[in-house]
Amino acid sequence: MAYDKFTVLIDTAVPLPTENVDTDQIIPARFLKATEREGFGDNLFRDWRYDVEGNPKKEFVLNDSTYSGKILVAGKNFGSGSSREHAVWAIYDYGFRCVVSSFFADIFKNNCLNIGVLPVTVSPEFADKLFAAITADPKTEIEINLPEQKITLLSTGESESFDINEYKKSNMQNGFDDIDYLLSMSSEIDVFAASR
């Protein structure tokens, strides 16, 4: 599915330093029952965000209005566990366009790139700086520059470059997805398939 183009994003961020956040936390299995890709944002981090009666848990960061923005800065090993793309849909649907972490689980990272959420891997030191800066001043802005592959903490000017493969980068910048590419080589695939 085509998504919004991503080039440069400047915004405030929401900090979630917890490590090993798995996809069952991002979106619990019981909310995977839809047959359409809509409305998943309401259940993002459901069991951390709401108690059993459905009341918001005050201490959870998404319920804390001091923090906002399209960038989620997350702890190490974010997105481990299941392959459910619903986890990324929830993140996207909630309004995030970029997740920053010092370490991502593989499938999760792939899923992000496939639907237009940019995963930015930074060094553990830079991640710590981001957490410190955001907690000290929730209005701190971060610049994510995809063409230059650079993330900058605007308050101090500190920056770091990040990796992304050229192909995925150009997809993100143009809002294309893999299917467009694959469909364009249909006859080449047919020849290959015939040999299997």
Binding site: N110, L182, I189
Partner: peptide, 19 residues
């Protein structure tokens, strides 16, 4: 053998390939 996301399920259905 490995797990994929729904976008990739769509790719396999449509083209029998993933990237």
């Amino acid at each position: 053998a490995f797990g994929i996301g729904t976008s990739e399920v769509e790719m396999v259905l449509a083209t029998q390939c993933i990237m």
